[in-house]
Write a protein that binds this DNA or RNA. Sequence first.
DNA 1: ATTATATTTCCATGGTTCTCGAAATATAGT
DNA 2: ACTATATTTCGAGAACCATGGAAATATAAT
Lengths: 105, 105
Amino acid sequence: MRLDDAAARLEALGNPTRLRIYRTLIRAGAAGLAVGRLQDKLKIAPSTLSHHIKSLVTVGLVSQVREATTLTCHANYETMQGLVDFLVAECCADSRESSDKKTAA
Amino acid sequence: MRLDDAAARLEALGNPTRLRIYRTLIRAGAAGLAVGRLQDKLKIAPSTLSHHIKSLVTVGLVSQVREATTLTCHANYETMQGLVDFLVAECCADSRESSDKKTAA
DNA sequence: ATTATATTTCCATGGTTCTCGAAATATAGT
DNA sequence: ACTATATTTCGAGAACCATGGAAATATAAT
């Protein structure tokens, strides 16, 4: 993953409203959730919601499937996994010493 | 981790300049890296660099240790791990079905 | 064609962020 | 006190983002 793509995705998740949306979709799992259901759950103005979903779709974290008049949204779990891998990947690449670094939670 | 804290951290990492800084620190590992060394490596104006480092420190992703005139920065790996856990934690909580969901890279 | 539901686009507003030069501050050596 | 190095704060401009109301579009049922 290119750094700019990673940054764009992190930025997308870095807004509390969008993070709520994204997490709700993650919780929904493979079944996904329609825009209207997100609206009901999260009480966000339709235009605002649409705007944020679009951001998430643009960076590839969410995809949409039309079913008649409803648009169902899915969190792209693999994309997020790739993002997580990107963050963790280079750990300590420049100095592989374990000295006093804590690895606990 | 509270959602707003997670969002603040993601937002901090969601700027390409800050992500570069953060990754450089991650690569530096436990030894950390002085602000000046970051400057040399990344060619960012001192005021801009300071500004971004402050953001990362504020959200807890980076900490600093003063050594005479130099300030050494460390990436707080555990904080990032917590963030990653937060993102992955709730996966599919609302519908535990594995249907056709891919788990590959 | 009309109506109803679902969602998006348009537009404006207020707020926030990014960047960097210049000046300020901190620490220490002479 | 003076100088040098390291880093931060201040200030300002341009750019960008978040929000939501109103109007537009899409799909389908009658």
